[in-house]
């Protein structure tokens, strides 16, 4: 009996287009070298940032991102200080390591929050249409009227600068982007014949949305989540750079750039390394996100 059911599951897996689609998807993703590079960098950074977070809060290596050493201030990279020291003699390498989880954490959390709010709004607008669609999308248009970091900046100016407030501000700014994309995909999926057929069979809206619409729109959601984390990291670094985001002495990378800009004539490395790290992280998300998009939709590939 057990054997028979195993066989059946196997058969279902072979026939089920979704399972087969996933197999093809991973095959395509594995073939995409730049996406893989992005993926491995992200995995590496993920573990490094966990180590950095533990080290920053529980002192594994006994180093500190806030230990000042004024005799060694503004020193260039050396064997002792890999990325040099800043104006207070703090070790920049250690600061980057200890700040990594903040940079990645703000990016992830802001994007996650935006998705939690934006995806349901997009589905509601796309699925139910009519006045609900008009109201939701007009509100999204209002939020979209503030280009770039302007909305996040305005929100932070009200809430005050802190790690949590920056995360909230960026999340609010990102909600309309999720809502727009999800609404578009929902509209397309809703028009598919089989969705009509299921509805004709008497399926409820909730069942249609969760079992049929949502799985079909997962790929644009996943791709945009990945790409949006990159944008969120850039925005967070920008706000902190302006002194309105994560506050010193927290070793957030944008805030470190803000520290370093006053010492560019004496010590260029203070601004070089944190910025380079932002570039690498954002690049990795962009590579992986582009790869996901190509793997989900091979027709788009050039």
């Amino acid at each position: 009996m057990a054997v028979a059911s195993e066989n059946t599951t196997q058969k279902i897996k072979e026939v089920n287009p979704r399972v087969k689609g996933m197999k093809d998807f991973f095959k395509r993703l594995r073939k995409n070298k730049s996406a893989l590079v992005g993926f491995y960098v992200l995995v590496l950074f993920f573990f490094v940032s966990i180590f950095g977070a533990l080290d920053a809060n529980y002192g594994i290596t006994g180093t500190s991102s806030s230990a000042t050493n004024l005799t060694d201030k503004l020193e260039g990279p050396s064997a002792q200080y890999w990325f040099g020291t800043d104006h207070l003699g703090r070790d920049i390498f250690i600061r980057i390591l200890h700040g990594m989880y903040i940079t990645l954490g703000v990016g992830f959390t802001a994007t996650f929050l935006a998705g939690i709010i934006g995806v349901p709004l997009g589905i509601l607008a796309g699925y139910y249409g009519k006045w609900l669609d008009t109201i939701i999308m007009r509100i999204m248009d209002i939020l979209l009227a503030f280009p770039g970091i302007l909305l996040a900046l305005a929100i932070v100016s009200v809430l005050g600068g802190s790690t949590i407030n920056v995360t909230i501000a960026i999340a609010i700014g990102a909600v309309p982007q999720f809502a727009r994309i999800v609404r578009g995909s929902t509209l397309t999926t809703k028009k598919l014949e089989y969705v009509d057929a299921i509805r004709a069979l008497g399926a409820r809206d909730g069942k249609i949305i969760f079992q049929h619409i949502l799985p079909n729109i997962m790929s644009p959601i996943i791709v945009n989540t990945t790409l949006f984390i990159a944008t969120a990291i850039l925005s967070a670094a920008g706000l902190s750079f302006l002194g309105l985001g994560v506050q010193p002495p927290t070793p957030e990378w944008g805030a470190m750039l803000n520290d370093g800009r006053n010492y560019m004539y004496q010590a260029a490395h203070i601004t070089f390394f944190p910025g380079m790290m932002i570039v690498i992280v954002v690049l990795a998300f962009n590579l992986f996100g582009d790869g996901l998009r190509d793997a989900f939709d091979p027709k788009l590939r050039k």
Binding site: A230, L257, G260, M264, A268, F272, V279, L283, N286
Partner: peptide
Amino acid sequence: TLFGLSMPNFWLGLMLIQWFAI
């Protein structure tokens, strides 16, 4: 272009100042 997309514009500005101005 991938690097161009991934660079914070304020950091690029700082680097340009460093190289071409300072």
